[in-house]
Design a protein around this nucleic acid. Structure first.
Lengths: 136, 136
DNA sequence: ATTAATTTTGCAACAATTACAATAATGTAA
DNA sequence: TTACATTATTGTAATTGTTGCAAAATTAAT
């Protein structure tokens, strides 16, 4: 995505694009690694030496509120973030620890037990061993 | 489930049924509230006044290892536990905070992107407002 | 009964996250 | 521009869920 498009996208969602926010958002969409706060912080501190970890937390919370990012909750001690807000699933490899995107067809899922329930968020993930790690 | 059945079930999975383990497991299957460690501890400390929170942690970790319980990870700051180890999903109501079980047909899901991947765990959950809370 | 092995317990340590107040940056109106 | 108001960023302290660890208690074995 072009920088101008990013600025538009954030602005349209009510996120004022400060330098920190821009860099964090760019990082989220360019590195498709579903990073943790710590990863984001460590990868950006070089380019923005004054960056504070609190800012990363604040910014991600803002992104979630404004709907330009989503939380991925696979392990209870590592919250990850994803700028892809479409409904999709994840696969976490227990060996290389990478998180992969997977497409899912949710139409088959919304069923029986929860008729009358209002669904706001859909989360799906698998854990196991990825193809590459199995052959290593 | 009868107590003897519970003992058999735990034993068959390699869990020696101490009083603490028995009570925690019974709590898990009787109260279908998908409790947190804190909830379990607070609800059992009356009946077992010497119970330690560390024991609850240890016991649940053992249950997971031995396959008689599963982790439910919906919020990043509240790990919940479930003695139903079959593949099923959950719905968390944002208003009353209850967690409901939902049946899912996983055959529709395992797809494309992850051919060749070894799947060990399947997790699915929704968030929203439950029927009762919508009508209140 | 002694000894060995396992389980439980309490407390300290740790790590992720949040609260909060101070500082910095930005926007606005004269 | 200058002065003022608003918003964003930062650093530190506090909080919370979890784990590490060694001592005490319980259970099993000889």
């Amino acid at each position: 995505m072009e920088v101008n498009n990013i600025i538009d996208h954030l602005t349209q969602h009510g996120v004022k694009p400060s330098p920190q926010r821009l860099n964090i958002y760019k990082y989220l969409i360019e590195e498709k690694n579903h990073p943790t706060v710590d990863t984001i912080f460590k990868d950006l501190i070089g380019a923005m030496p004054t960056l504070s970890k609190t800012t990363v937390y604040n910014t991600l919370k803002l992104f979630i509120d404004k709907g330009v990012a989503k939380v991925i909750n696979i392990e209870n001690n590592e919250t990850r973030y994803d700028a892809d807000t479409s409904i999709h699933g994840h696969f976490k490899c227990e060996k290389c620890l990478k998180v992969f995107d997977i497409n899912i067809d949710m139409s088959e899922i919304k069923t029986l037990d929860i008729s009358g329930f209002l669904i706001k968020e859909t989360h799906f993930y698998l854990k196991g061993i990825c193809k590459k790690c199995r052959s290593d």
